[in-house]
């Protein structure tokens, strides 16, 4: 659960960890039933649409202005977004 909380970037207190663990486990037990299904030779469906090769032409277009891009940020400085430095890339 601690690992899940870290991977999901959802800070939890240890009490919360226990509470969620119980619920998540219950749900996982329920979804276990999928192992009863015979899926040999079945291709997975990642999208219900049959489209292939959808692309767009390499034409640049105007996007947001700097002001629009920055306006919802908590902190900005000299046209840049600001965040407190973290020590390492979280996995």
């Amino acid at each position: 659960m601690a690992k899940l909380s870290r991977l999901s970037q959802l800070p939890l207190t240890s009490k919360e960890e226990d509470a969620y663990a119980a619920q998540v486990e219950e749900i996982l037990e329920y979804v276990e039933q999928l192992s009863k299904v015979d899926t040999s030779g079945v291709e997975p469906t990642f999208s219900p649409i049959d489209l292939k090769n959808v692309t767009r032409p390499d034409e640049p277009q105007a996007g947001l202005s700097q002001e629009e891009a920055l306006k919802d940020a908590r902190e900005v400085k000299n046209g840049l977004f600001v965040v407190k430095t973290i020590s390492s890339k979280s996995s």
Partner: peptide, 15 residues
């Protein structure tokens, strides 16, 4: 494999 991929296969069967 056991969760996501399998669910995606069951999805095919439902389709």
């Amino acid at each position: 494999d056991d969760y996501f991929a399998r669910a995606a296969k069951v999805r095919t069967l439902i389709i």
